[in-house]
């Protein structure tokens, strides 16, 4: 804890420029602004959820420069110059991404709160490993907590999506 506590208005804002779902944005942000707040509050991309807010549950997972990250534990200034993919970026031309279609088809969700993060972790997994084993799928979503499903249908959905994507 600092001896001289700063008020937010005393801190200079920082200009950042980044791409989100292929679209470029320039904004001035407070240094303490988290990437998840930037996405939800500045860009109104509220598909990325805040779950635990303590780097635990994975609901806020997005891809930053191709790697899955917990956007509640990344500062917006750290993402400066980067490319972000959120759940809103999965759908293309009104078509669900195969992962989204498979989650729907296989009931890979109940309340849906963890789903955006699950989808992004599954997306990152399939980018690296198009044909994951059940064990590799478990490891792929190890940082995402689901309190409803027991994960079984999520595994099924990811396997089905992987198969669908390989056929393309």
């Amino acid at each position: 804890m600092s001896t001289t506590e700063l008020a937010a208005h005393e801190v200079p804002k920082v200009a950042i420029e980044l791409s989100v779902n292929g679209k470029r944005y320039r904004r001035e942000v407070e240094p303490r602004e988290l990437l998840v707040q930037f996405l939800r509050e500045e860009l109104r991309l509220t598909g990325t959820h805040i779950g635990c807010d303590t780097t635990y549950c994975g609901a806020c997972t997005v891809l930053l420069n191709g790697e899955p990250v917990k956007s509640c534990t990344v500062l917006a200034v750290q993402a400066d110059g980067g490319e972000v993919l959120t759940v809103e970026g999965l759908e293309q031309d009104g078509q669900l991404h195969p992962l989204q279609a498979a989650f729907s088809e296989h009931h890979g969700l109940q309340c849906g709160y963890c789903t955006p993060g699950m989808l992004m972790s599954a997306y990152a997994l399939l980018e690296r490993n198009p044909k994951p084993s059940r064990k590799e799928i478990r490891k792929g979503i190890q940082g995402n907590v689901c309190r409803c499903t027991g994960y079984h249908n999520i595994f099924e959905a990811i396997e089905a999506a992987a198969a669908a994507m390989r056929k393309e």
């Binding site: 804890m1 600092s2 001289t4 506590e5 700063l6 240094p31 303490r32 988290l34 807010d53 303590t54 780097t55 509640c72 534990t73 990344v74 500062l75 750290q78």
Partner: peptide, 18 residues
């Protein structure tokens, strides 16, 4: 930031500068 930001978010540490 995977250790530091967690400490900052719970206000366990309040640095003036990063």
């Amino acid at each position: 930031g995977q250790s530091l930001l967690v400490l900052l978010k719970i206000r366990f540490d309040e640095p003036t500068d990063l």
